[in-house]
């Protein structure tokens, strides 16, 4: 229902724009006591695409991410999600509208079992779970769907293990399963492959590609190889500003982008420094 439609009409009217772009920002700015972390950022995320947000360390990617998911309030600017102004909404409300995020440090509930982790998300559809007088046995009806989701990310065998005991890569997979349980329209992934071994990276890339079917994904990512292989479009941030936007092949040839990456600290691109330079 949210798949990308290439059909375009020659009119800039509002309805068309909303149909094409799920998330738009205008002049998004965040200042911390005089320090401008994000400055005048205007983003457009196309429906059904995988959009990458990249940039050197300290470019404001994570701040930007926190602004979009409402974990921080912008100083100025407007955020529109699905044609609706969400600039002043609390984060839990935004999540209920289908804009669901993950976290940079793997965010699981360590003492709950893997199954319960996913179930907490599935439980959302009951509405607010304020019924403290009812037995949690009523939650068993979500077990089947939770197991199916765990199957999707290859965690079936770990269902009864406490989530805290999972190895790092599996925790990220569990986090994605939990996020998916909410059936998000727009998924925001904050460095899904950070700190992973090569095989784990491949597994997560495959997973993201698979779950991106029928939804939009915005990801912050350091690993340029991952970005190149996965993203339909990227936005490059430096010092809180948008430096370039467009398809990877195009942006990576941009001399300013190359300068931003090589001019600062080339190690930020992790194992694939060649990524940008190779295209130069």
């Amino acid at each position: 229902m949210v798949s990308f439609q290439p059909r375009r009409r020659r009119s800039g009217n509002e309805a068309d724009r909303v149909r094409d772009y799920i998330l738009e920002t205008e002049g998004l700015t965040k200042e911390f006591r005089g320090f401008v972390a994000v400055s005048d950022v205007s983003l457009r995320i196309r429906r059904g695409s995988i959009h990458g947000l990249i940039g050197p360390n300290g470019a404001g990617k994570t701040t930007c991410f926190n602004l979009l998911t409402k974990f921080m309030q912008p100083t100025r600017g407007v955020i529109r999600y699905d044609g609706r102004d969400i600039t002043r909404m609390p984060p839990a409300r935004v999540a209920r509208l289908g804009l669901v995020r993950s976290f940079q440090i793997s965010a699981v509930f360590p003492h709950l079992t893997v199954l319960e982790n996913v179930r907490i998300a599935l439980q959302r559809e009951r509405g607010g779970s304020y019924d403290f007088w009812r037995s949690d046995a009523v939650l068993r009806r979500y077990d089947e769907r939770a197991m199916a989701l765990l199957g999707d990310v290859g965690l079936t065998t770990y269902a009864q293990a406490p989530a805290g005991t999972l190895p790092y890569g599996r925790k990220r997979a569990l986090e994605i399963a939990t996020t998916l349980a909410l059936e998000p329209v727009l998924m925001l992934l904050d460095e899904p492959t950070a700190g992973m071994t090569h095989e784990d990276v491949d597994r997560i890339v495959e997973l993201v590609r698979r779950v991106a079917q029928g939804r939009t994904v915005l990801m912050v990512e350091h690993n340029l190889k991952v970005v190149e292989g996965l993203c339909d479009a990227i936005t490059v941030l430096t010092r809180g500003r948008v430096l370039a936007e467009g398809p990877y092949a195009e942006v990576s040839r941009n001399p300013e982008v190359i300068a931003a990456y090589l001019g600062s600290d080339p190690s930020v691109s992790g194992g694939s420094q060649g990524g940008v330079a190779a295209h130069a």
């Binding site: 998911t69 974990f71 609390p90 984060p91 839990a92 409300r93 999540a95 209920r96 669901v100 995020r101 993950s102 976290f103 965010a107 699981v108 509930f109 360590p110 003492h111 709950l112 319960e116 179930r119 907490i120 998300a121 439980q123 959302r124 009951r126 607010g128 779970s129 304020y130 019924d131 403290f132 007088w133 009812r134 037995s135 949690d136 009523v138 939650l139 939990t178 909410l182």
Partner: peptide, 24 residues
């Protein structure tokens, strides 16, 4: 041990994550 208690446990374990799942 109620649906409410499950959410409470989730909040204790990781509050930002519980928020991101849509819980106030």
């Amino acid at each position: 041990h109620s649906p409410f208690g499950q959410v409470l446990t989730a909040i204790r374990e990781n509050e930002p994550r519980a928020t991101s799942l849509g819980y106030r």
